[in-house]
Structure formats: C-alpha cells, structure tokens
C-alpha cells in the first residue's frame, strides 16, 4: 500500500508545531499502525531527518502508552482498539491519513505525538488507591464479593489510562478515566472505607488539572479501547454528590 500521512511535528513544548506531509510506500496491510510509523521513521533516519516521536510500550493493547488521533478519531475509527493494535488493512491503498497528538491543555505536547499525561497520575495519587495495613495477602475468598459487583469492578479496572477519552471529548473532560478508577475501587469491599473521600479528592484533582466538564456526550466510551461504560460516570457522580453533602 502507498499512503500519504499528514503528521503533527513539534520540536518541543515551546515550539509552535505544524502539520508535515510524508509519503510512505510499500506498506504491508499486516503491519500495525505503529509498525507503519517505524518504517517511515527508519527512512527519515536514513535520510538524516528527525524521526517522528510517539509513545508506545507493550504494543499488545494492554499498557496504555500508545495513542494518537487518526483522521480525527482517537486511536482511529476501529472500535475498542488501541493504536498499536490497529492494522493497516483497515485503510485503503492511497489513503491520506491525518495524525495528531491528544489535544488537551492538561496534556501538553512533549514532542510531535508524545503528550505528558502526568495529570492522570496526580488524579490517581489524590485517591485512586486503597490504604491497607501491610502484611501477607489474605486468602482470596476470605472477603466475599458479589458476582455482579466483581464483574462491574473488573470491567472498570480494565482502563489502561491511555487518555483517549480526554482526546475524544468535545469538552476535554477526564470523567471516564476518573470514573473508571472510582468505580473499580468503589464497588469492592476493600474500597468502602475510603469511598467518599476518594471520589471527592479525585474529582477535585481532575477539575484542578484543568480538564473540562462532562456533558454526557458519550464520545469517550465510543473511542475507549477498553469499552469502559458510561454508567461509571453516573457512579462517580453519585459518590461525589454523596461525599459533598
């Protein structure tokens, strides 16, 4: 396949940045999106140019490092798929593809397609944990958990913190990410003691970071590679309202 890429290039945080057009020839439809960028980068390096910087790690859809807005859609149009698991067979030969970083004020661009997602870490630090007295791990079935709760908590726990929800949200809100964490811990018995303070602290940190407000557009769930459901946000709101009473 032959492709035309329009890629956001930005030398550093203070550089203005611009879209640059590249031609990539002989792309195999079996390549992943990142492998296609690797091919382009090798050619750029051979030509003495600066390769395109992008985040990645596991390349198997589980770490949450990768992510770019492809043709206006976070992680591309393929549903429930991270950028690393997106394959070139979903694109037409001769296609023109626009590639941009996540766009949000709390996610400043570090270089090209790499953004700084420490804002997510600070939301987790605000309350996304369970304080337990250290000691040996208790028996797995010593604390019973209802099957429904276990399932919903596990669904929420699959969030990989990639930030696609923020990138896709017309409001630049981080509600789906924060709600996934609050739901995951808030549904389990171990999470009950800190349930209220957790919701309050995490929501407040999220607002403090400069993310926008949620208007329930549902764009986040639609692009989320893990399909985190929108009802996590209702749970977050319920916990937050209860804690603010």
């Amino acid at each position: 396949m032959n492709l035309t890429l329009k890629v956001w290039r930005q030398n550093g945080p203070s550089d203005e940045g611009r879209m640059v057009t590249y031609k990539v020839e002989d792309v195999s439809p079996d390549m992943s999106f990142l492998e296609m960028l690797d091919v382009l980068n090798e050619r750029l390096i051979l030509a003495g140019d600066d390769p395109i910087a992008f985040d990645h790690d596991c390349r198997e859809g589980i770490c949450g490092m990768c992510g770019m807005v492809i043709n206006g859609v976070a992680h591309g149009e393929q549903r429930a798929t991270t950028t690393c698991q997106l394959h070139m067979r979903h694109f037409a030969d001769g296609a023109e593809i626009t590639i941009e970083p996540w766009r949000a004020a709390p996610f400043p661009v570090v270089k090209d397609l790499v953004v700084d997602r420490s804002a997510f870490d600070r939301i987790i630090q605000a309350g996304g944990f369970i304080s337990v007295p250290a000691g040996s791990a208790p028996d797995a079935h010593s604390v019973p958990v209802k099957k429904d709760d276990a399932d919903a908590a596990f669904d929420a726990a699959t969030c990989i913190g990639c930030g696609a929800c923020v990138a896709a949200c017309p409001n630049g809100s981080a509600s789906l990410f924060t709600a996934a964490k609050i739901t995951h811990l808030g549904l389990l018995p171990q999470g009950q003691p800190e349930r209220d303070s957790r919701a309050k602290a995490m929501v407040e940190q999220m607002d403090l970071e400069g993310f926008g407000g949620c208007t329930n557009t549902g764009e986040c769930t639609a692009v989320c590679p893990k399909g985190i459901p929108l009802d996590t946000i209702a749970r977050m709101n319920a916990d937050y309202l209860k804690a603010s009473k």
């Binding site: 149009e77 407000g213 764009e219």
Partner: peptide
Amino acid sequence: RAAQARPVKYAAKRKSQANGYATH
C-alpha cells in the same frame, strides 16, 4: 471550561463516534 481545556484544535474534522445527533 471546554474551550480552556482544548486551546489547540484538531486539524482533522473530529468525527462523532457516539452517533448522538441531539447531543451536538
């Protein structure tokens, strides 16, 4: 808040993935 949270707009037109016409 939404405008402040996204000072730099996307170059590509953002396509709605949630098919919620009313929402927009």
